[in-house]
Design a protein around this nucleic acid. Structure first.
Lengths: 153, 153
DNA sequence: GTATCTGCAAATGCTTTGCATGTCG
DNA sequence: CGACATGCAAAGCATTTGCAGATAC
């Protein structure tokens, strides 16, 4: 359940450089947290990453893992899988539709699109299991957050 | 920020019938929770729904809202927006890729697809803001969970 | 050397649960 | 009437934060 070392190593080198560019210190803990994530083909949660990193740094604390995952995602060095960096959101619309998700405020809005109706589940996805539904997720900045930004300038 | 009453009312009628079919009691609170959700074009979280419902039922409690949202999503009467009914999951893969999400165990795996490379963001999504990225989310049952099911039979 | 990071422990906030009472069908 | 739903209050977890000491650069 992990990538070949060559892939991981090249990712790590790119990561180090990206840290330097952004003025983020490359600490031992931070590097191992990144390594754990970059090695995994699934998308582990904080707890899972914590357990992996502990094998290499037994003294690492829970909050260091959380803090670094948050910091790295703020700097765009890693991503959060799925939509919510927040709470659960519910949806009464059970028909096929797609989502626009604001990366700043978490707003989710539905849209439909004829173009997207024709998409069918690609072969590649079948390798992992039996697909049930498919939808598009567009991440972006909503008009509200976009205009706030302008006001600040 | 809400649907026309005709749409909401027809959803509510369908909801009532679906409840009866599944043996779920149509209580005052449950109906108002559903109404709040069905009326909203955004995808409110539990707290927001709680605040809306409180206008009609001031004595409703927090946990009734949580319990009903969970119950309704278990019965497939409403959906959870996004992937995670769990914890945050992280992702070191910053290139364009798509997700297969197991609805049972929460597993997330990446896949790429030439067919999907050609998809571009539909006009409809631009109405909500400035799109940044786009990816497909396939929900389904992973091979592991699928085989567990078979063993139980 | 200094700004940043880590570890600890305690706090915060969302969500769940046990139990007695109330309500739907 | 009897099973299921609600309200209350308290517990459970994931995640965050304040602070003193440690570390990267």
């Amino acid at each position: 359940m992990s990538f070949p070392a060559s892939v991981v190593n090249s990712r790590i080198e790119a990561f180090k450089q990206a840290c330097v560019e952004r003025g983020v210190k490359v600490t031992h803990q931070r590097l191992e947290i990144y390594r754990a994530l970059a090695s995994s083909v699934t998308h582990p949660d904080a707890e899972t990453i914590y357990r992996i990193v502990r094998k290499r740094i037994p003294t690492i604390s829970h909050d260091t893992v959380y803090r670094n995952l948050k910091l790295l995602s703020d700097y765009g060095l890693i991503a959060v899988a799925g939509t919510s960096n927040e709470r659960l959101r519910f949806d009464a619309n059970m028909e096929r539709h797609h989502h626009f998700v604001c990366v700043q405020c978490g707003l989710i809005r539905d849209f439909c699109s004829e173009q997207l109706e024709s998409i069918h589940c690609p072969q590649e996805a079948h390798a992992f299991g039996e697909p049930v539904s498919l939808h598009i997720e567009v991440k972006g900045v909503c008009t509200k957050c976009g205009s706030h930004k302008k006001k600040k300038k």
